[in-house]
Structure formats: structure tokens, C-alpha cells
């Protein structure tokens, strides 16, 4: 167990904890509101921010942060018009974000930034600065969720509850998109933009059959996310596969195992 004395391993577990907590918190809301594709959209758009940071030479996660905030507001504004379905719009933003990212990556091809780090994650290379950023974002999201928990529940139901002659739920919807964007941002370095969706969705899909309320669903999703994260990281430390791959494959294995468990528990 000497390996756990290394700073980069400790950072990896701390970053993983942060990611699993945030995805566990937001995952049930994503699944409930049928916006799983929105998380993928934010992940791809974040890559455009990374590209921007590469071109103008600043911290990649900061570039992703700026682009994610702008895109969250933009998506909300277009969705509020109620002309197009959210998933279709998300696909437009996803492709657009990726196209911008590709262009910026091409322009910044001589820079030292590795885009694979943000596509597939690189939890073992998390720096202290990135860890602080993740910690701050986790605290902010937790604080906002604590205050706005019930209003958020009303807008993530499908269909979302609408209040006659009031725009309040629409503003809560904006808050939801921003929280989702921040969660994707934290996951960008740990499991990567292409895999963060799995971390958001799989724990919720496992947990949903074993609970009666949204609160317990969220708690169980966090616990399952942490188990998948720690187990995946542990495997990756001793087997030569990328950590993000090990984490997601662990979660998929948990999901497959949960299927007969559900049947045994409810149909015995």
C-alpha cells in the first residue's frame, strides 16, 4: 500500500471523490429530466474552451469554465423559446462545440496541451491548482444545491412543472444548466469529456430500483459513484489500463450485476 503515500495518487483519489459526489448529485436530475445528452454536449463544448486556452495560453480548465458558462446561458435561452426539443438543441451545440474545438486545436497544434487529457481524462496528473479549483466548485455546487434543492426538483421532473404566469421555474432551469456545466468541468480532467456522461447516468440507473424518494436516490447514486470511482482507480493503479476506462468499466459491471439483484429482490 506504499503507492497511497504518493502525492499524485492522493490527488487522484481526492479529485475522484469530488467528481463522484458532483455526478452523484446531478445524475438523478439529468436522468429525470431526460437530458443525458446535455451532459455530453457540455463536455464537447468544454473542449472548445480548452482549445481557446491553448490558443491564448491560459489554464485549460479556466477556458472550459468560461465557455461552459456562456453555453449554459445560451442553451437555456434557446430552450426557453420552446421551439425545439432540448435533446435536438443539445446535439447542435455538441457538434458546434466540437467543430470549434477542432479548429482551435488545429490552430494551437504547436502548444504543449494534450487534448487527450480532456477527452479521456487524466486523473493521475491532476495538479494542486486543479484540485483547489475542483474543491471550490464542489463546495459551490453543494451550497447551491442545498439552497435550491426543491426548486430544482420541480424543473427536472419530466415534463417539468410549469407555473402559470411565472418565469421562476425558467430561472431555476438556468441554474440547473449552470450546475451541470460545472459538474462536467470537474469531470473533464478526471474521467474526460467523452466519459463523464457515464458517471452521471450509470449510478442513477443502478440506484433507481432500490429507493422510494429522490433524496435517497441521490444519496445512493453518490455512494455507488464513489464505489465505482475508488474501485476503478484502485484497479488502474495495479493493472495497466487508463483510470477513466477502469472507472467506467467498473460502473458498467456494477450496472450489469444490479440487474439480477433487482429481480431477486423484487420478484422472488
Amino acid at each position: 500500500m506504499e503507492i497511497f503515500t504518493f502525492t499524485f495518487v492522493q490527488y487522484a483519489f481526492l479529485a475522484g471523490t469530488s467528481t463522484a459526489i458532483l455526478t452523484g448529485l446531478l445524475g438523478p436530475m439529468i436522468v429525470s429530466s431526460r437530458q443525458s445528452v446535455a451532459s455530453d454536449m457540455f463536455a464537447h463544448i468544454a473542449l472548445a474552451g480548452v482549445g481557446l486556452a491553448a490558443v491564448f495560453n491560459f489554464l485549460p480548465l479556466f477556458g472550459a469554465f468560461l465557455v461552459l458558462l456562456v453555453s449554459a446561458v445560451l442553451l437555456w435561452w434557446v430552450v426557453a423559446e420552446e421551439k425545439y426539443a432540448t435533446d435536438a438543441l443539445s446535439m447542435v451545440f455538441l457538434s458546434g462545440g466540437l467543430a470549434v474545438a477542432l479548429a482551435l486545436i488545429h490552430i494551437a497544434r504547436n502548444q504543449a496541451i494534450s487534448f487527450d487529457t480532456y477527452l479521456f481524462g487524466s486523473i493521475l496528473t491532476v495538479t494542486q491548482t486543479e484540485l483547489w479549483l475542483m474543491a471550490i466548485l464542489t463546495i459551490v455546487v453543494l451550497a447551491v444545491l442545498t439552497v435550491f434543492w426543491y426548486p430544482l426538483l420541480s424543473v427536472v421532473q419530466s415534463p417539468a412543472y410549469r407555473v402559470p404566469y411565472s418565469r421562476r421555474p425558467q430561472y431555476i432551469q438556468l441554474l440547473f444548466f449552470i450546475l451541470l456545466a460545472l459538474t462536467v468541468l470537474v469531470g473533464l480532467k478526471t474521467v474526460g469529456g467523452l466519459l463523464i456522461g457515464a458517471l452521471l447516468v450509470i449510478p442513477t440507473l443502478i440506484a433507481r430500483h432500490f429507493v422510494q424518494s429522490f433524496k435517497t436516490l441521490t444519496i445512493l447514486s453518490i455512494v455507488l459513484g464513489l464505489i465505482g470511482m475508488y474501485a476503478g482507480l484502485f484497479i488502474a493503479l495495479f493493472v495497466d489500463i487508463p483510470p477513466s476506462s477502469a472507472i467506467i468499466l467498473t460502473l458498467i459491471a456494477m450496472f450489469i450485476l444490479s440487474l439480477p439483484t433487482k429481480k431477486i429482490l423484487f420478484y422472488k
Binding site: L153, R208, V211, F214
Partner: peptide
């Protein structure tokens, strides 16, 4: 596919 939501939460 509705996720669980208690009457209180609802």
C-alpha cells in the same frame, strides 16, 4: 422511466 419521487418531495 419516471425516477422515484416521494409525495412529500413532489
Amino acid at each position: 422511466y419516471m425516477l422515484p419521487l416521494s409525495v412529500y418531495e413532489f
